[in-house]
Structures are given as structure tokens and as C-alpha cells.
Simulated assay, not measured.
Amino acid sequence: MSAGIVFSANDAVLSWTLPFLTSLRAHNPDIPLALIPFDADCEGVLDLAGRFGFTVFEDESFGRLEAIGARLELGHSSYGPHWFRRYAAFWGPFERFAYLDARQVILGDLTAFVEATATFGIDLAYYDTELDQVYAPGPMRTRFLREGGARGFNSGRWASRRGLFTVDDFETLVEAQMTVRSELNPRNTDQAFINHACDAHGVRMVKISDLLGDTVSSGWARQKGRPYRDEEGVWRLWDHGGNDHRKRLLLMHWAGYQAGDLLPNGRLLRHFGGRLPVRWSRLARNCLATNRTMRRLAGRPE
């Protein structure tokens, strides 16, 4: 059985891609890795292939997938249809795979995530969830909830198996989705698409943190708590009194943030070779200096 990780990136997110790949290889040095180019602007990302040991997956289905995205797009993004290329992973180079966006850092061994569909006999394992980012309240959402679906999983980090869907399946599915477009999130088009695909087909889905147990249930950088490394070098979350206190962190992501934002837990990006974007680095330094001054005045350790 072939197993590996598929990721998507282009040069617009090159500053994110370097810490992503550095962190991934720090914790998963030997796992096969393949790039699905986000678009044609990938020269800088492709230059990293030798350094980080990844192949490039190109497929004639990219155009068909982008056409599906274009049908569902409501004009909120000029590049939204490109996100649909990621779903070529379902007929890509690996029988079992995890798909990952580049705007995240990897903080642990992802083998159990990649192989979850085989290990646990499921079709798809997911990470973060937010139902309102996928479905609007309405009869379809209610029906899927009643049937045990409507998880609302994030489309930037999930694991599945080859053959679960084909591009023909997706082209058929988009016809049905056009009739219920008003019940899908208007902006997160690709996320709404894959969730609806899974719910409409009764895909067996489980949250990876529920399967693995000692794993933080969310990877979003804005969550409560503070990432730290224990005495054995394992990344964990310090959230005293919280459900995830001292549990393992497999990854941390910045979905929804742009390079110009003041990023929560941005130190993790710097730890893995990222740099503060010029637009906000001065503000960040000023905030850090102010925080240190306030701690000294309060007599607290820095």
C-alpha cells in the first residue's frame, strides 16, 4: 500500500511554504510527499523539490476541477476555482494520503493521520470543524445532521483514500449542488463542495483527535492555550483547565489569516524558518516590547 502526503502551494504563499516544509520534514523525514501546483505561478515552490524531497503531480483533470469551482464561485475570490485542484488527490499518487495546505506548520508524526482510513476502516479523517463555514441553516443542513453527517470539516487538512471520488463523480455532484447553492457557505466554496460531497454520499468520516485520543482537537492558531515542547521534545498544548491540556499538537494552521495580519502563535513560523512579513513586523516588535514592559512593571516573569 502506497501512502503519503499531498500538499498545494504557489509562489504567492512561498513565505508560508518554507516553514511548512521545514516543519513537515523535521517530524516526517521519510514520508513520500507530492505537490499539486495551485496554479501556474509555482517556480519558487518547484525549486524546493530537491531540498525537501517532493514530487509534482500534474493531471489533465485540473481544468475540469477548476470549471466545477467556477460554477459554484459567487465572485468573492478571483482564485477560488484553483482550490479545487486539491481534489485530484483522490486519484493521485498515493492509495492512502493526507492532504495539507501550506499555511500551517507540522508538529508531530503524521503517519497515523495518513493511514487512518486503512487502520480504522473509514473513508475520511478530518481535523478542525466549523459547521457555519460550510452550511447555512436550512432543511439540507438539518437533514444531514439527522442522518449523522454535516461535520463541517476544514478543507485544508484531511486524510482519505484513492478512489473515494472520481472527477466524473464531482461533475455530476456539482449539478445537484447548484440547486442548493443558497444553503452552502457563499465564500468557502471548495470547503462547502467537499463537505456536501461527503454528506450526500454517506462517506464514513471521523475526527482524527477522536481516533487517536491524546491529540489536540483543533489545530487553529487562534485557539486557547500555548504550544510548548515537553522534556522529550513533543509539541503539546498548555491549557490548564481545558479539555486539551497537555495533549499532543500534530499541527497548527492559520486558515483565514493573510500575510499582513498579526498572526497568533507566529513564533512557530519563525521557529521553522519563517519571517515576519514586512508590513506588520514593526508592529509585532512594538507589541512584544510593550508586553515585556508591562510584565516587568507587574513583577511577573517574561
Score class of each variant (00 low, 15 high):
209 S>G: 00
210 D>Q: 13
210 D>H: 08
210 D>E: 14
211 L>R: 00
211 L>K: 00
211 L>C: 02
211 L>T: 02
212 L>D: 00
212 L>S: 02
212 L>K: 01
212 L>E: 11
214 D>P: 02
214 D>M: 05
214 D>Q: 09
215 T>K: 03
215 T>N: 03
216 V>N: 01
216 V>L: 07
216 V>A: 12
216 V>Y: 03
217 S>C: 13
218 S>V: 04
218 S>C: 07
218 S>P: 04
219 G>N: 10
220 W>C: 01
220 W>R: 08
221 A>C: 12
221 A>S: 15
221 A>E: 04
222 R>I: 03
222 R>D: 10
223 Q>E: 11
223 Q>G: 11
224 K>G: 01
224 K>V: 01
225 G>Y: 07
225 G>M: 05
225 G>W: 05
226 R>W: 11
226 R>A: 07
226 R>Y: 11
226 R>I: 14
226 R>V: 15
227 P>T: 01
227 P>K: 01
228 Y>K: 02
228 Y>R: 01
228 Y>W: 10
228 Y>M: 08
230 D>T: 12
231 E>D: 15
231 E>K: 15
232 E>P: 02
233 G>F: 11
233 G>R: 14
233 G>V: 11
233 G>K: 14
233 G>T: 12
234 V>I: 13
234 V>P: 03
234 V>K: 06
235 W>C: 06
235 W>E: 04
236 R>I: 07
236 R>W: 03
236 R>G: 05
236 R>F: 07
236 R>V: 05
237 L>C: 09
237 L>G: 13
238 W>I: 11
238 W>K: 13
239 D>L: 13
239 D>S: 14
239 D>Y: 13
240 H>P: 12
240 H>Q: 14
240 H>K: 15
241 G>Q: 14
242 G>H: 08
242 G>C: 06
243 N>V: 14
243 N>W: 08
244 D>C: 07
244 D>W: 04
245 H>E: 12
246 R>T: 11
246 R>L: 15
246 R>S: 05
247 K>S: 08
248 R>D: 02
248 R>Y: 04
248 R>G: 07
248 R>N: 07
248 R>T: 15
248 R>S: 11
249 L>Q: 00
249 L>F: 01
250 L>F: 12
250 L>A: 06
251 L>G: 08
251 L>C: 12
252 M>S: 03
252 M>W: 00
252 M>E: 04
253 H>T: 03
253 H>M: 05
253 H>P: 01
254 W>G: 08
254 W>D: 07
254 W>M: 04
254 W>P: 02
256 G>S: 09
256 G>A: 09
257 Y>N: 04
258 Q>Y: 08
258 Q>H: 11
258 Q>G: 15
260 G>M: 13
260 G>H: 13
261 D>Q: 11
261 D>C: 08
261 D>H: 15
263 L>H: 08
263 L>K: 00
